[in-house]
Every structure is written in structure tokens, then in C-alpha cells.
Design a protein around this nucleic acid. Structure first.
Lengths: 336, 336
DNA sequence: TTGTAGGCGTTATCAG
DNA sequence: CTGATAACGCCTACAA
């Protein structure tokens, strides 16, 4: 049987109101009465019906995330972000609501259900697109949200890593190691950070006066397989690169596989670098040079920002741009 | 402004009741009326308030999971299970509610809040303990739940992998490769599967007539560091093992690190095996011999069972015991 | 100090 | 075919 305020009211002989206030800690309740009521509540294991409370208070005490479901969900990026957000949400006594997004469903609709359905008090989103409709929606709905990543419009709270600088660091690093033919495996064009990373690549090329070859920029879909295939296209070029930078670690790992399949040694024969510094970057053989993004920490910090927003405050620092950190590992190979 | 049934009622001139029924697809509504109402609802972007619906219908259409934050959240096991559950939940139009569990908080309380607070229609749990109080609670609350793993009481729906057989396969495999001194890095004693795996180890030892050495069983906490430390204790023995089996992959990876730090080669000098077959097992160097648990698939199947339960059905096959699969990789080293 | 009444938004029952 | 009414469980003016 389910225990409600009514149950306790009947059991104690007081009204529902008094029970409610006794349990809520109001000070206009007789101490005797309160003790009595609390004792009964504990004996019965009373737990307030949170749906009712939500409806009444218009607050869910819940943070929402929508997760795109790639077939094998193999994206450690999201998992790490999720861990960080979950961790910090717990710290603030918030729960998480996850809506997994079967490809082909309307993603915006998932947000609409969460937000307009009053299921979440705030939303965390990542992997922003150009003119991201999710951001437009959340802004227009005036619903608290925070974002991992800048977009064209920047009038929303976000944390981002300076992607452009990151790629620049990698190009400079490889140039320093004696490479001239440095290729890029690009992320999908509709992702905002793709533009930024591409820009970083071009800027580095210009300032270092590196010779640009046709076909040195190949697109991948951020998956390992995508990186693998992009690397194949790169190695088939008449003038193949001696160093490959991928826009995320997964694609870099894929590229390493391609290199190995061709009988070459990643690092020794062709240098490889990724972006993100996911755990698998350390486990790879050779270990992967990459740009460290403190995804877990960013998740925690984003959550702090969001909680602040949900409490009605305006964040004093709504835009945080982190400087990337170059992590040199064996996949850089030797200096030449 | 928020759009409710009332808004649409006023806009259309019909009553809230009629609007509700028109949108819900009842057939006792004039087609004309329905079209009119639906048009308005779409124009206004109406989205039902799900808290209200929950309160009224006593259903949340949500599946709950409680995730202990250390050392599990970063645990690939949980991430994969979560992916599987999330994936299949989406397929059934369920969302997920995650409650991250800050260590030191009462875990049972998190379940109580979810369940008695009517936030979830069903619960998925994993990593069961002996006399698991969570199971006792859920049974007594008569709330739908499914479990990854058997416990002492088995009168609840679960899917499990035959852990004992798994460890037996590994011991036999190493014996076959010529090893006699085969050690075990055990999971914490309070976990149910620890007992089963330990039993498998002992049974294999007996039937193969292997010589048991004092100290060949060392405990770890399932983390990489735990495995690393356990392996150190093993290698300090007077008569150190030539093969090490860990109760999960993370600890096995830790053990490999210890071996390397001692200037030995995992596989070549000391054989290593894990359990789970997480993605990182493939990325390790050398690649890790392990027992494959189809965690993602189990997550999906568990969710199917749970959805079935939540719909009030009794599952026809409430207990599924999967046979483990031995995956031999380079960390087994050569036959001797 | 305690109780009554009303409403959060939805759906089900029952009457018109 | 449509609408008034009640109830899900909780919270909070307001009244006593």
C-alpha cells in the first residue's frame, strides 16, 4: 500500500496540512506534534510522491541530457561528459534524466518533451552544430541550459576548449618534428568545432609556410571506422602525408589501424595525433599523441553553472574558454 | 507562456475534457472538432505536462538506475550496461533516470526515493551483493525490477553469465598452455559473483590437480589500481605465479602494468587474463585474453524483460544464464 | 498552533 | 458527441 500524507494524517489524527508542515520543518508546528508525526512517517517509511511535488512546485530537481545513439554507443566522449555531469548533479542533489536518441527520430522533439513536459529543470548539451536548432529552441523557451561548445550565436552559457589552438599546437608539433606533409581528418562539417579546428589547421599552415596538398583534408564521422576510411584515402594519395591529425581520438585510432594494415608503423613511419584524450588514447599501441580536453571536469563545471542558472541567478562568467594542452606520446614517432 | 489543455480549450471554444480526448485519439469526438483541436495544439506547440500525467496515471514511463560513483561510474562495465539499457529503453519509448550515488550516502535511500517517490516504473540493477538489501527492498515494495546477476535468493528476474564456468575456462586454458602456478585476483567478497568465480577457480584446480599455493588469491576492488596492487603482492611471493587471472578486465590491465614495471613482458613472461571483454581489452598491449560478457546485449535484453514486467506480464523466462565465451588473445603468451 | 480550501494539469466517470 | 466534476498527492494562503 502506498503511504501518503493522508495516511499519516489519519494515523496521527492531525490534518494533512499539519502533517505536511511538520515534515517540511515549518516552525509553526507544536514540537510535540512534530515528533509524533515524524515518528509515524518514519515508521511507515513515508516518501513524498515526487510527481505530485513536481506538479505543485513546477520543479523537477532533474537535469536532462539527450544522447544520440550511435549503433554501438562507442563514444567515450559522451560517457565521460555524462560521468562528470552525473557526479556533480549528485553533489547538488539533482538526478539525471537521459533520453537516448534512436537515429532517425526527431532530436528536437526529445528536448521539447523534456522541457515543455516539465520533466527537467535544466539541460546540458554538447556537440553543437551551426545554427544549432536545439540552442534556438532552448533560448526561445527560456529554459536554463548550458553547453559544451560555442556556436555561431554565443549569447548562452558555455564552456569550450579552444579547438583552433589545439589543432595549431598539433601542426606546430609535427612541423617541429620535421614533418611537412601533415594531413587532417576532419569531423563532420555541420559540427561547430569542425570550423574552428579547420581554421586552426589553415592558420598554422600559413604561418609555418607548409605546402598544402590537394586531398590533405578528409572527412570522417567521428567513429573509429570513419577514421580508418579517411586514412585509407589519405594513404592512397600520390604524395601521402607523413603525419595525420584527426579531429578526435576515435578517428585517430582508426587511422592507426589503417597504417598498420598497410604494413607501416604508426609513429615510426607515419605520425598520428588525435583530439580529446579519451582513456583509450593511453591504452593504444603506440600511445596516442593528442589534445587533452578535461571532459569530466568540464561536465562538473557545466553542472555547477547550470545549477546556478536553475536557481535563477545569472552566471558571472557565462563563457569559459579553456586552453588546450598538448600531450605528446609515442604516436608522434621520433624527430626527423 | 506555457500551453496547457486549458489554453487550447479556450482557444478552440471546447471544454478541457473534449480537448483531452481529441488529442488522446478517443473515437467519441467529432472528426471536425478533432481536426480543429489538433491544428491549434500543433500551432501552439502543445506538449502535455508529464508531471501531471504521471500523477494522474501513476506511471512515469521511466526506467531507473542508481549508479555508485566510485569506483564505478568510470567503469566501462556500467557504461556499457547503461548504453544497452538506454538504447532499448528508447526503443520502447522509455526514458532513463539516473541517480548517481555519492559514496557515503545511503544507497538504499536512492532506490526508495525513486520507487516510493513514483519517479520510475521499473529499476535495473547490477553488481549484486550477498543478501542484497536492494533486492529485498524491491521485492517487498513489489516494484518491477530486473537484475544483472544472480544472488542468494533467485526468485526475481535476472540475466547472468555463468561466472564459475568462465573462470574454469580460463584456468583450463592456462593449464593447457602449460601453466601450473595460476593465481587469481579476486573481486570484493561481498559481491555475489565473487563467490561463484572463486568456486569455479577451486573446482578447476581440483579437477586439474593443480598445486595450490598460499597467497595465490589476492583481492582487488575492481579498479585498475586495485589490480595493479594485487599483482604486486602476487609477484612478491616466494613462488610467484606464471599466470594471473583477474575477475575483471580493469584489474587485469592493472596487473599488466605491474608486470611491465618489473621489467617483465605480459604474455611472454607472465600470462594474464581478465573478465568482461570491455573495449579496452582490445586496445591493450598485448591484447587481453578474457571472458566475453555481452554486456550491451544483456542491457538490452534486461530492458525488454523489464518493460514486459512493467506492463503487468509475468516473464515466461525470468532467469537467463548465458554461457561464457573464452577469448584468447596475446596476453596468454605462447604455449609452454 | 491547526485546519479549510484551492489549485498545479491531466484523465476518467458519468450525466446531458 | 460534449461537458461538468472529481481525483491523483502535495503545498500554501488564509481563516479560525
Amino acid at each position: 500500500m502506498r503511504i501518503t500524507l493522508k495516511t499519516i494524517a489519519e494515523e496521527s489524527g492531525f490534518s494533512i496540512t499539519t502533517v505536511s508542515r511538520a515534515l517540511a520543518g515549518y516552525d509553526d508546528v507544536n514540537e510535540e506534534t512534530r515528533r509524533h508525526i515524524i515518528a509515524i512517517a518514519e515508521r511507515l517509511g513515508y516518501q513524498p510522491n515526487l510527481s505530485a511535488r513536481q506538479l505543485r512546485s513546477q520543479q523537477s530537481h532533474t537535469i536532462g541530457m539527450v544522447i544520440p545513439l550511435t549503433p554501438y554507443f562507442s563514444d567515450p566522449f559522451f560517457m565521460e561528459l555524462l560521468s562528470g555531469v552525473g557526479r556533480q548533479a549528485a553533489e547538488h542533489n539533482y538526478d539525471l534524466r537521459l533520453s537516448a536518441q534512436v537515429p532517425g527520430q526527431d532530436e528536437l522533439n526529445a528536448y521539447h518533451r523534456m522541457v515543455a513536459g516539465r520533466q527537467v529543470d535544466g539541460v546540458v548539451l554538447a556537440r553543437v552544430h551551426h545554427q544549432d536548432p536545439r540552442i534556438a529552441y532552448l533560448q526561445q523557451a527560456q529554459h536554463p541550459f548550458v553547453v559544451f561548445g560555442r556556436s555561431d550565436a554565443e549569447d548562452y552559457p558555455y564552456i569550450d576548449v579552444d579547438s583552433g589552438s589545439g589543432i595549431r599546437l598539433l601542426v606546430e608539433h609535427f612541423a617541429d618534428y620535421g614533418h611537412q606533409r601533415i594531413a587532417l581528418i576532419l569531423s563532420p562539417r555541420d559540427l561547430m568545432f569542425t570550423t574552428l579546428r579547420l581554421r586552426g589547421y589553415r592558420e598554422a599552415f600559413e604561418s609555418l609556410n607548409l605546402p598544402y596538398r590537394e586531398g590533405y583534408i578528409q572527412e570522417g564521422d567521428l567513429s573509429q571506422r570513419g577514421g580508418l576510411e579517411a586514412a585509407e584515402r589519405l594513404l592512397q594519395l600520390a604524395d601521402p602525408p607523413t603525419a595525420i591529425i584527426a579531429c578526435n581520438d576515435l578517428m585517430a585510432l582508426g587511422a592507426m589501424t589503417t597504417i598498420q594494415r598497410r604494413g607501416l608503423r604508426p609513429g615510426q613511419d607515419i605520425a598520428v595525433a588525435g583530439f580529446d584524450d579519451i582513456p583509450a588514447a593511453l591504452d593504444a599501441e603506440p600511445q596516442l599523441t593528442t589534445i587533452h580536453q578535461p571532459i569530466y571536469q568540464i561536465g562538473r563545471q557545466l553542472t555547477d553553472m547550470l545549477v546556478n542558472l536553475m536557481q535563477g541567478n545569472t552566471p558571472d562568467k557565462p563563457h569559459i574558454l579553456l586552453q588546450p594542452e598538448l600531450i605528446i606520446r609515442a604516436s608522434s614517432g621520433p624527430k626527423r
